[in-house]
Amino acid sequence: MTWPEAGATDTGLLVLHALRCAGTVSLARLHAITGLDESDVESELIDLGADGLVTRLSGGIPGWSLTEAGRAADSERITHELESAHARARVTAAFERFLVLNPELLDLCTAWQLRAVDGVMSANDHSDPAYDSRVLARFADLDRRAAVVCAELSAALPRFGRYRVRLTGALDRAASGELEYVADNTGSYHVVWAELHEDLLATLGLQR
C-alpha cells in the first residue's frame, strides 16, 4: 500500500505549531525551530497576532506565545494535517518507538549533569574529558537510533524533518566543544528532544 505524499506544512502553521511545542520563544529561536527566515517568521507572527492566535510577552523574558485561541487553532489544524496525510498510524508507531528511547535520553542528560563520585552525586564539572566523551559517545549511539524514528516521522509528515537537522546540529556543536549544546541552552539536544516529545503528543492529541 502506498500513501499519498504529504505536502509541506504552510508557514503560518509552522510558526503556530512551533509556539505550541516550544512554549514562549524569541524570534531567533523561531527561526532555529522552523528554519524560516526571521523576516518571514515575523510576518507570519503579525498575521497570527491579528487573528488573535499569538501574543507578544514583554518584560523579563520577552518572546511570543500562543493565546488560548491559538492553542485551539493549532490543535485543529495540526490534526487536520495528520488526518489528510493519513499519517496517524505511522506517527503513532514512531511515537511508541520514541517512548522507548525517551528514558535513555533523560538518563544521558542526567549523566551529563551529575556524576557519582564515591557514591556522592555531584555536578559534573566537565574536568574529566574521558568521562564527557564517554557520555557523548552514548549520545551519538542514541542519536543513530533516534535517526530511524525521525526518518519514519518525516516520511509521514515532512515538517518533522527539522528535528533531525536540529538534533544532529546540537550534537555536532557539543562534540566540537560547545558543551552547553547537550542540555544547557535553548538549542540543546535535550531542549530539541523535549520539543519533539511535545510535538508528538500535540500531533496525536495525547496528554502527557
Partner: peptide, 29 residues
C-alpha cells in the same frame, strides 16, 4: 510535570516542584 511549554515559567521561578517524574525527568534536567 513539565514540558517545553513550562520553561519560561521555570526560568522565572526560584524553585520547581513536580508531582510526577524522577531524578531524570524533564523538570529535573
Amino acid at each position: 510535570e513539565t514540558s517545553p511549554n513550562d520553561v519560561h515559567g521555570l526560568a522565572a521561578a526560584a524553585g520547581i516542584v513536580t508531582a510526577r517524574g524522577g531524578p531524570a525527568s524533564h523538570a529535573a534536567v
